[in-house]
């Protein structure tokens, strides 16, 4: 029972991070139908920028918590700019190209960003400065640390803010309208270009927050870390029903928990044949199974053929 609860806690933490990244995928996909493969790289750059900024501020004598906050702000700003630039330079010219074209561009940008990051930050693992004392809490037999609590709280707050933005502001309404039908939205006076840019910028900001938290959680970062994270977050978005914000959040958390439980129990389940290093396959196995039985995702609406 202890393991079970512990894995639920771990899964919730990891899942909050997936959820934040998944939101970036789902917003862009919902509005323009593009899998933005480079989103995982945006997250990675968020982590690495935080390391550089916070690291040098700490070295300059700034209090650790303040430096961490400054690092996060810097990461959010850099990533927003990066998201904006990606859309403007790489995707916007391809708005009316065949479906495969922007996807290949996205893959290309992903490769470019990874290798740029490698040139800037090198190919070695970087350590993330510890912002917080490692306090341990215990509840009903499950242990958790201050950073885990903070990750869940920050994710919840960020997602809450996003929901407010999307459902309570004019920009949010324009975004929802564009997702429904870009042509009609533009007839109604919505500036579709601005909406798409906003989706990229907001998604990247969420990605940056997620990047900071991944770094803080694992205390380690690497130029290739964005790939697997991005892939799983996209899986989470599909799991929840792509294009659906609440679905991305729930899908992310669900995926985190499934992975954690899977990793905790796979040894027992297979009689020791498969160990916890198979953790990464759960995301994809779950994805395939869900798509088999509920193609529109767990929380997505049924999308029939458009005749």
């Amino acid at each position: 029972m202890d393991i079970f609860l512990q894995q639920i806690v771990n899964g919730l933490v990891q899942g909050s991070i997936y959820a934040l990244v998944a939101l970036g995928y789902t917003m862009v996909y919902g509005i323009m139908g593009l899998i933005n493969f480079a989103h995982g790289e945006v997250v990675m750059i968020g982590t690495l920028v935080t390391i550089t900024v916070a690291g040098s501020l700490i070295k300059a004598g700034m209090p650790v918590a303040l430096a961490g906050l400054a690092g996060m702000m810097a990461a959010v700003l850099v990533c927003m700019a990066l998201g904006w630039a990606l859309e403007r330079v790489a995707y916007r010219p391809l708005r009316h190209a065949p479906r495969l074209t922007p996807l290949i561009t996205a893959i290309g940008m992903s490769i470019v960003l990874q290798n740029l990051a490698m040139m800037v930050w090198g190919r070695n693992y970087l350590t993330f400065p510890s912002f917080l004392p490692s306090v341990d809490f215990e509840l009903a037999g499950a242990h958790f640390t201050a950073i885990q609590v903070i990750i869940v709280l920050v994710s919840a707050a960020t997602m809450g803010a996003l929901l407010l933005l999307v459902y309570r502001t004019k920009l949010g309404m324009a975004m929802r309208a564009t997702a429904q039908n870009p042509a009609v939205a533009s007839l109604m006076g919505v500036n579709v270009n601005r909406v798409i840019a906003a989706a990229f910028i907001i998604g990247s900001a969420l990605g940056a927050v997620a990047g900071v938290m991944v770094g803080a959680y694992y205390e380690i970062a690497h130029y290739q870390m964005g790939f697997m994270l991005g892939l799983k977050a996209f899986t989470a978005a599909v799991l929840g029903g792509i294009g659906n914000l609440a679905g991305a959040m729930l899908g992310g958390i669900l995926l985190g928990i499934i992975e954690a439980l899977g990793a905790g129990y796979i040894g027992d389940l297979t009689g020791g044949f498969l160990g916890s290093h198979y953790q990464d396959i759960f995301a994809f196995v779950v994805l395939i199974v869900v798509l088999m039985f509920k193609p529109s995702g767990l929380f997505g609406e049924k999308s029939g053929d458009r005749a």
Partner: peptide, 21 residues
Amino acid sequence: LADPESLRMLVFGLALVLVMR
């Protein structure tokens, strides 16, 4: 100035983007 391996991949990635464009 830059590690040849990553420069090589960088050029490859850019080529993908530019050809699609």
